[in-house]
């Protein structure tokens, strides 16, 4: 990984960070295997250069962009975000990138575009792509969610370019949503007027909603979401439980996006 020069950001939590080795060895990146230790073991086969990103759908002009030009488009900021997995564990990770909104503005979506879909790489030559899933991985946001300044277009973490298992070379991070919303190794941004299909919602819609905002009052059918195991540098076999916060503690920034919405129905 190469060092990234990142400036500090106002959107940063001062909570103790998850050590680098834990954040890079405990990953959900099913393209490289379904066990959390698989991505760190298998993702070395991913080729992150050359890498192009397509911008398609309801945009002024479809584009094919080179990863390095996207990275240089705006200054990189370092943002320390809480990261809450739907599986009830959480980390605190310093991400490096710039606001997704800046990239979306560059893409010039048409006024009719209401959603943005992220499609990840699905290449059998580089990835395991286990059966039982409809690859490529697809995620999406309402356009106003994607334009929220917290949504981060991410190229690095811990001051260096993303390790492959963390979604190199380009991913998104939405800190107020469960981790699976953060599409990794993106090759396409597709703008549309209809809610895009998303991989985990396709797999099991009763367990993974389209919105998937962190919400301690809406249980996952198989476990409570009221609290989380914080993965930090404690190094104890006893888990450190903390209460889960609404919108993962980012209510001030994002709650207005959902005014009037029934968040139990739109989980």
């Amino acid at each position: 990984a190469d060092d990234l020069h990142a400036a500090p950001s106002q959107y940063t939590t001062t909570e103790p960070q998850t050590p680098f080795n834990k954040a890079t060895t405990y990953n959900n990146f099913y393209e490289f295997g379904t066990d959390k230790s698989d991505p760190a073991r298998n993702a070395h086969t991913l080729k992150t250069r050359p890498w192009t990103v397509q911008v398609t759908g309801m945009v002024k002009k479809p584009l094919t962009l080179d990863i390095d030009s996207i990275m240089k488009y705006r200054p990189i900021e370092s943002r320390v975000y809480r990261h809450r997995c739907v599986e009830a564990w959480s980390m605190v990770i310093p991400w490096d990138g710039y606001s997704l909104s800046q990239f979306i503005s560059f893409c010039e979506p048409l006024p009719s575009a209401k959603f943005v879909q992220f499609l990840s790489l699905a290449d059998r030559k580089q990835m395991n792509l286990p059966g039982g899933f409809d690859w490529p991985y697809s995620e999406g946001l309402r356009l106003d969610e994607a334009m929220n300044p917290l949504a981060l277009l991410t190229f690095g973490c811990y001051g260096q370019t993303l390790p492959n298992q963390n979604g190199a070379p380009i991913r998104v991070v939405m800190p107020w949503k469960y981790g699976f919303k953060n599409a990794k190794s993106i090759v396409k941004f597709h703008f549309t007027d209809k809610q895009p299909h998303t991989t985990w919602n396709d797999q099991n819609s009763s367990e993974y909603g389209f919105y998937s905002n962190v919400n301690p009052t809406v249980d996952h059918p198989r476990w409570s979401q009221a609290r989380e195991r914080r993965i930090d540098s404690t190094n104890s076999i006893l888990p450190r439980f903390i209460p889960t916060q609404m919108f993962n503690g980012y209510s001030d920034q994002v709650a207005s996006l959902y005014t009037g919405m029934n968040l139990k129905k739109y989980y």
């Binding site: 954040a23 060895t25 959390k36 564990w89 195991r229 993965i231 104890s236 076999i237 888990p239």
Partner: peptide, 17 residues
């Protein structure tokens, strides 16, 4: 693994056990 400390160094020991 517990005695050597390797277990505690895992990201999510409880999940592993």
């Amino acid at each position: 693994s517990y005695n050597s400390g390797a277990l505690a160094l895992k990201a999510d020991p409880v999940n592993y056990i």
